[in-house]
Amino acid sequence: MNIERTSQARAIQSTTAQPQGEPKAKTDEMGNTVKKDGQPNGTQVKLSQLTQQFKTDSSRDIDTDRVAEIKAKMDAGELTLDSDKIASALVRDIFLFS
């Protein structure tokens, strides 16, 4: 490819412009187009039973106090990480699950 033989770039023109005077379609909070009667127009999503169960899960398997403590240390710049310990744990997990 020779740089002297390149052609000049052309300006990009918009082809999807909405005609002047037409009102923009109404959308709901999720960005879905809404019909004139207020009903959503488009794809409807139903969550699976498992997903609904996750949303209402109260098992408290995450230690939120520990997470808050780690976030505070990160924000303060006081969190020290032992990369050897992390790498060893990752390798151990790989061998356990292989």
Rank of each mutant, 00 (worst) to 15 (best):
S83P: 04
Q39Y: 11
P19E: 04
T15H: 06
T51C: 06
L96S: 14
Q18D: 10
T33R: 06
S59G: 02
K36H: 07
K36V: 07
F95C: 07
Q20N: 10
K71Q: 13
K85M: 05
M74Y: 10
G77E: 01
E29D: 15
V91I: 14
T51V: 07
V91M: 14
V45W: 00
T56C: 05
A11Q: 08
S58F: 12
N32G: 07
P40Q: 05
T15P: 04
P40A: 02
T16C: 12
P40E: 00
K36I: 03
L96K: 12
N41Y: 03
P23C: 01
E22H: 09
K35Q: 08
Q8H: 09
A89C: 09
G31V: 06
P19Q: 04
T51I: 04
V91Q: 14
T80A: 02
G38W: 02
A11V: 03
T16P: 06
D65E: 11
F54I: 07
S14V: 07
K73V: 00
L79G: 01
E22T: 02
A87R: 15
D84C: 04
I12D: 08
F95L: 13
V34S: 01
Q20I: 12
D75S: 09
Q49D: 13
E78Q: 11
A89I: 11
E29H: 12
P19V: 06
T6V: 10
D75I: 01
G42V: 00
T80W: 03
D63N: 04
L79A: 00
K35W: 03
Q8G: 09
P23F: 01
E78A: 04
T6G: 10
L47C: 05
E4P: 11
D75M: 02
K24V: 12
S59D: 01
E69W: 01
I3L: 12
A9K: 05
F95W: 11
L81G: 00
Q39T: 14
A76M: 07
I86Q: 06
Q18I: 13
T16W: 15
F95Q: 14
A17H: 09
K26V: 05
T6C: 07
K24E: 13
S48C: 08
A89M: 15
Q18W: 11
P40S: 10
P23I: 03
V45F: 02
M1H: 06
D82L: 02
A68Y: 00
S58A: 14
V91H: 13
E69G: 09
E29F: 08
M74P: 03
I70Q: 07
F97A: 15
R66N: 13
S83D: 10
T33C: 06
T56G: 09
K24F: 07
D82M: 04
P23K: 01
D84F: 07
P40R: 03
A11T: 03
S58E: 15
A72F: 02
S98Y: 12
D61N: 15
S83W: 07
E22Q: 08
D93G: 09
L79W: 01
N32I: 07
G21E: 00
Q52C: 08
V67E: 00
L90F: 13
I94K: 12
R66P: 06
L47W: 08
F97Q: 14
K71A: 04
R66V: 11
M74L: 14
L50G: 14
E22D: 05
S48D: 12
F97E: 08
A11G: 04
Q8N: 10
